[in-house]
Amino acid sequence: MEHTLTKEEIRQEKNLVYKKTNVMTDNILSYCPGCGHGTAHRILAEVIEEMDIQDITIGVDPVGCSVLAYNFFNLDMQQAAHGRAPALATAIKRLFPEKFVFTYQGDGDLAAIGTAETIHACNRGENITIIFINNGIYGMTGGQMAPTTLPGMKSSTSPYGRDVQMMGNPLKITELVAQLPGTCFVTRQAVHTPSTVRRAKRAIRLAFEYQSKNMGLSFIEIVSNCNSGWKMTPRQSNEWMEANMLPFYPLGDIKVPEK
């Protein structure tokens, strides 16, 4: 393509299409290269910026890779005990019903140690937003098998692949909470390609809008990669995720509010 504009002429404030949102701090993310956590953080921050709710939003961090998320968001954040983020978010939302409250949890936090808190918060229909990052492995502690690990998938504690006879079946917690009457919006998204990132961002925006209308709990699962835990390069892990994770965890809305 031939054109006459120089790079300096193109790189002007009036031509700006996309830059990092101010709702994220300038700290360098502690995640591995190519980790879906960074993208999930960024789209969440962009939604908060677009809705202009930065000073009335409170986030709750889990334990796991995203335990340091309070360093990356320019928001009021609270750190919960392992798995107890929905319980803490319940307390915050009940004390400050006019604030937007979200939890950001991984699969070791939400689907393993925090199953009880998650299911009961969903069943009570607390008016919060839960963002659940599912990478099928315990990333922070060194790639051990998680409840969400696929059958046959290798991890450091299932080196020959997950044997469902011995280790049980993977837990589809998103389908589980969709059965509960307290949830209003349950969806599963991914963040590995531009189109999936756009859809995931739209889902997060909808969840915050439902929260502002007091419609109940919104639950957004984001299927993500863990290239360090899966022992792959980021590109390979995204391809592996598309070939193996997405058939088992199909993307799309599972429960949407009635109009």
Partner: peptide, 18 residues
């Protein structure tokens, strides 16, 4: 098109269009 910036996990890409 900003596709690269949208998928960048670390948000390092700034996009301009004219």
């Amino acid at each position: 098109c900003a596709n690269c910036a949208i998928v960048c996990p670390d948000g390092v890409i700034t996009v301009y269009r004219v």
